[in-house]
Amino acid sequence: LPLEERVTHFRDMLLERGVSAFSTWEKELHKIVFDPRYLLLNSEERKQIFEQFVKTR
Protein backbone atom coordinates (compact mmCIF):
# COMPACT_ATOMS: atom_id res chain seq x y z
CA LEU A 1 0.00 0.00 0.00
CA PRO A 2 1.19 3.55 -0.66
CA LEU A 3 2.18 5.53 2.43
CA GLU A 4 -0.75 7.93 2.06
CA GLU A 5 -3.21 5.03 2.15
CA ARG A 6 -1.50 3.42 5.15
CA VAL A 7 -1.66 6.75 7.01
CA THR A 8 -5.39 7.00 6.26
CA HIS A 9 -5.97 3.49 7.63
CA PHE A 10 -3.92 4.31 10.72
CA ARG A 11 -5.88 7.52 11.39
CA ASP A 12 -9.17 5.65 10.90
CA MET A 13 -7.99 3.13 13.47
CA LEU A 14 -7.21 5.91 15.97
CA LEU A 15 -10.73 7.28 15.52
CA GLU A 16 -12.44 3.87 15.72
CA ARG A 17 -10.49 2.85 18.81
CA GLY A 18 -11.49 6.00 20.67
CA VAL A 19 -7.99 7.38 21.10
CA SER A 20 -8.15 10.50 23.24
CA ALA A 21 -6.75 13.76 21.90
CA PHE A 22 -5.87 14.72 25.48
CA SER A 23 -3.78 11.69 26.25
CA THR A 24 -0.25 10.51 25.53
CA TRP A 25 1.07 7.93 23.08
CA GLU A 26 2.04 5.65 25.96
CA LYS A 27 -1.41 5.78 27.57
CA GLU A 28 -3.27 5.14 24.31
CA LEU A 29 -1.02 2.39 22.99
CA HIS A 30 -2.97 -0.45 24.63
CA LYS A 31 -6.05 0.53 22.60
CA ILE A 32 -4.35 0.15 19.23
CA VAL A 33 -1.40 -2.23 19.51
CA PHE A 34 -3.40 -5.36 18.63
CA ASP A 35 -5.15 -3.82 15.62
CA PRO A 36 -3.62 -5.09 12.34
CA ARG A 37 -3.55 -1.51 11.02
CA TYR A 38 -1.07 -0.63 13.78
CA LEU A 39 1.61 -2.49 11.83
CA LEU A 40 1.03 -0.57 8.58
CA LEU A 41 3.54 2.09 9.66
CA ASN A 42 6.96 1.91 11.27
CA SER A 43 7.36 3.12 14.86
CA GLU A 44 8.55 6.59 13.87
CA GLU A 45 5.65 7.09 11.46
CA ARG A 46 3.11 5.81 14.01
CA LYS A 47 4.23 8.28 16.64
CA GLN A 48 4.32 11.14 14.11
CA ILE A 49 0.79 10.43 12.86
CA PHE A 50 -0.45 10.10 16.45
CA GLU A 51 1.03 13.51 17.33
CA GLN A 52 -0.63 15.09 14.27
CA PHE A 53 -3.90 13.34 15.12
CA VAL A 54 -4.09 14.70 18.67
CA LYS A 55 -3.22 18.23 17.53
CA THR A 56 -6.04 18.28 15.00
CA ARG A 57 -8.73 16.72 17.21
Rank of each mutant, 00 (worst) to 15 (best):
F10R: 03
T8W: 04
G18I: 10
R6F: 10
R17G: 00
P2A: 15
T8V: 10
K47T: 02
E45G: 07
F34D: 15
F10N: 10
A21F: 05
Y38R: 03
L40K: 00
N42W: 02
K55S: 12
K31N: 10
L41Y: 02
F50A: 01
F53V: 02
V7R: 14
S23R: 01
R6I: 15
F10K: 01
L29M: 15
H9V: 10
S20T: 08
E28D: 03
L29W: 00
H30S: 05
R11Q: 10
K27W: 02
G18L: 06
Q52H: 08
E45S: 06
R17H: 13
V54D: 09
D35Y: 03
H30G: 06
K55E: 14
I32C: 07
E45D: 09
K55T: 14
L3R: 15
M13W: 12
T56G: 09
L3N: 13
F50Q: 01
H9R: 11
H30T: 06
T24L: 05
V19W: 02
P2V: 13
S43G: 13
K27S: 03
K47F: 12
H9C: 11
F34W: 09
E44W: 11
E28K: 05
E16L: 00
D12K: 12
R17T: 07
F34M: 12
M13L: 08
L14T: 06
E16P: 02
R46V: 07
V54E: 01
Y38V: 02
G18E: 14
L41E: 02
P36L: 03
F10D: 01
E44Q: 12
S20E: 05
S20V: 03
P36S: 07
R17P: 10
P2E: 15
A21R: 09
Q52P: 04
R37S: 03
I49L: 13
L15F: 09
R46E: 10
E4D: 15
R11A: 06
S20C: 11
H9L: 15
I49T: 14
L41R: 04
T56Q: 13
P2R: 15
R6T: 02
E5K: 06
V7P: 08
S43T: 11
L40R: 00
E28G: 03
L41W: 01
D12I: 11
M13F: 02
L41I: 08
L1S: 12
L29V: 11
R6L: 04
I49V: 14
R17V: 07
I49W: 02
F50T: 00
R37T: 14
V33R: 14
K31M: 06
R11P: 14
V19Q: 04
V33D: 11
Q52N: 06
E44Y: 08
F22Q: 14
V19I: 06
D35V: 01
H30F: 00
G18N: 12
R11T: 11
S23A: 13
T24V: 05
R6S: 01
I49C: 10
L15D: 12
F50L: 08
T8K: 07
L40V: 01
K27V: 08
L15K: 11
L40M: 09
Q52G: 07
V19L: 00
R37Q: 01
L40W: 04
Q48H: 14
L15A: 10
E51A: 13
E16S: 02
E26C: 14
V54M: 06
E26Q: 09
S23C: 15
I32F: 07
H30C: 05
P2G: 15
D35A: 00
M13E: 05
V54F: 12
R11D: 01
K31D: 10
H9D: 13
E4T: 04
T56A: 13
L29H: 15
E45L: 12
G18K: 15
T56E: 15
I49H: 11
L41P: 00
K47Q: 14
F10E: 00
L15H: 09
T8S: 11
E51F: 10
K47W: 05
E45Y: 05
F22G: 13
F50C: 00
P36I: 00
S43Q: 13
R11N: 09
K27F: 14
P2T: 15
V33T: 08
E4S: 13
L15C: 07
H9S: 12
Q52E: 14
E26D: 11
R6A: 13
R46N: 07
E4P: 03
R17M: 10
L41D: 00
E45R: 07
P36C: 01
F34V: 12
P2S: 15
I49Y: 14
E51M: 08
F22L: 12
K47V: 06
L41S: 03
V7T: 09
F53Y: 14
R11Y: 10
R37G: 03
M13V: 09
Q48T: 09
T56K: 12
D12V: 04
K55I: 10
K31F: 05
V54K: 08
F22T: 13
R37K: 02
A21S: 09
M13C: 02
F22A: 13
H30R: 09
I32T: 01
R11L: 08
E28C: 06
E28T: 05
V33G: 02
E51G: 04
T24Q: 06
P36R: 06
E4A: 08
H9A: 13
S20H: 01
F34K: 12
T8Q: 05
E5H: 13
L14K: 01
E45H: 11
E44D: 15
H30M: 06
G18Q: 07
D12G: 08
N42D: 13
T56N: 13
Q48N: 15
R6M: 10
R11S: 03
F34I: 14
N42V: 00
